[in-house]
Design a protein around this nucleic acid. Sequence first.
RNA 1: UGGGCCGUCGACUAAUGGUAGGUCAAGUGCCUUUGGAGCACUUUGUCUAGGUUCGAAUCCUAGCGGCCCAGCCA
Length: 566
Amino acid sequence: MAAPGPSNFIRDIVLEDLKANKYGGRVQTRFPPEPNGYLHIGHAKSICLNFGLAAEFGGKTNLRFDDTNPSKEETEYVESIKENVRWLGFDWEDRLFYASDYFDQLHEWAVTLIKAGKAYVDDLTADEIRMHRGTLTEPGKDSPYRKRSVEENLDLFERMRAGEFPDGSRVLRAKIDMASPNLNMRDPVMYRILHAEHHRTGNKWCIYPMYDYAHGESDSIEEVTHSICTLEFEDHRPLYNWFIQQLGIFPSRQIEFDRLNLTYTLLSKRKLLQLVEEGHVSGWDDPRMPTISGIKRRGYTPEAIRNFCGAIGVSKTNGSIELAMLEHFVREDLNKRAQRVMAVLRPLKVVIDNYPENQIEEMDAVNNPEDPSAGTRKVSFSRVLYIEQDDFREDPPKQYYRLSPGREVRLRYGYFVTCTSVVKKDQGEVAEVHCTYDPQTRGGNSPPDGRKVKSTIHWVSAAHAIDAEVRIYDNLFLKEDPNQTEAGQNFTANLNPKSLEILSPAKVEPSLANATVGNRYQFERLGYFCVDPDSAPGKLVFNRTVALKDTWAKIEKKTEKGSPKR
RNA sequence: UGGGCCGUCGACUAAUGGUAGGUCAAGUGCCUUUGGAGCACUUUGUCUAGGUUCGAAUCCUAGCGGCCCAGCCA
């Protein structure tokens, strides 16, 4: 048993069922992805819910691939899904299942239903079936094949299975009610003919069960007690229950919850696939993608994602979580664990004129103020440094506390420096800044006279810094709801052309020389960054996971409205 | 327009007929060798109208609004 999980209505139901001893005190859940794409943060919500709930009550969670459609499913996807679930920190132990494990049983049950007069082979074309289905407001019409004898149905279904008929020529349908107000009950298709190779069963089958026929039974076979799924399957529940009742098999209880929506992001496997296929992103694991692989590469931690999933709750209202909520949980987690380091993204040369030409000092820097056990390290200080271009303004606006002519600031763990002059390029652009330092402020300590400084900025020693490429990410989409488009456009019209900005060369402190892929750091005053797999020996590539909260950016944005900037 | 589901601060979510609370966001102040972090404080909410009740976010009725369903996809 684990600690109590976050309260929600599904947990309440489980609690009630436990109290009523409904399943002999058992809690069995499952996470049932279709292996037709990569998992995304929305799936993480479901994974946390299913695994979390079972763990809390000493139950088990199965990983089951709902692989009933061979034309869309691939082994690459099952591997990525297994890896992602594991990375998130969950373990299905020996309970890895596939709906395809149940194809024989499902087929046998289909025969049972035919024998009971509850299923029939229909020769209508797909178009004809659609026309017979009726509409939302009008009942459907019975297929002319609905009254076939059991013998004929058995014979035809067997010949479907034997491969006698071409794709699409016949289907097996449940015989329920063509006048049902619930369209799912209007004689739904159970089996279709698909002469396609399945990623696991190969060419054994040329008929494949529909999800609606396979899903409930798969849960039943696994004796899943609480079958948790998203809202759109609510209308399907009566159908799943119908099959279970006709067959007299273990009744799992289906409970539906709202799928995750996140502002500025798309959570649809189909659309994510489109982004990959059309090359709008570099792949399923592009750090701008909301896939587990993408946010992992971006530098998110499993803990942050789990905390997020716990915090957003579970309900049946369809809403959209602000992206800021997700970002909060990465910052919260990384703040505690990420080592601090100094890095300059857009370098501006600073010369400290009164600092001895060949002198180098090793300054002590704290690795993580949130975690004293992380210790300290040395950083080299010298006469020529780089600071952030943003940290200098020749003509500082109100409330800008950083370096500007005549102003003194602290170089973190270095010295107090005062800007004395500026060297410009022909175009008037600032090429370098000259300063003087106060030797009495070594380590960045306040001088004996008690002089205070309004700002502390980061720096790297020009002679010691190493080059790196830094990738800055912004939202992939410009609109809160990427699906909101004008007529004739699709969501790709909302793509943010500036979602990726590459900064190179950035200058980072030399302690980063042996950073390895996946390592996460806080670049002081900038944000959290991690080493990208594109890195190679001597060529570091960092992804910005998320920026630090930026009070100055907020002030600047606010004043920008009223008055022109600068 | 048939059926199903859902409406609580800007966002998400609690309150299970009895004080509308939490998180994020926003704002203010304190603190600070990160304009980070932390701490303190503040603003804003029960879709509407009736009804039941000593008492309603909660129960009932009627409206209004949103989402889903007419794949041989899942």
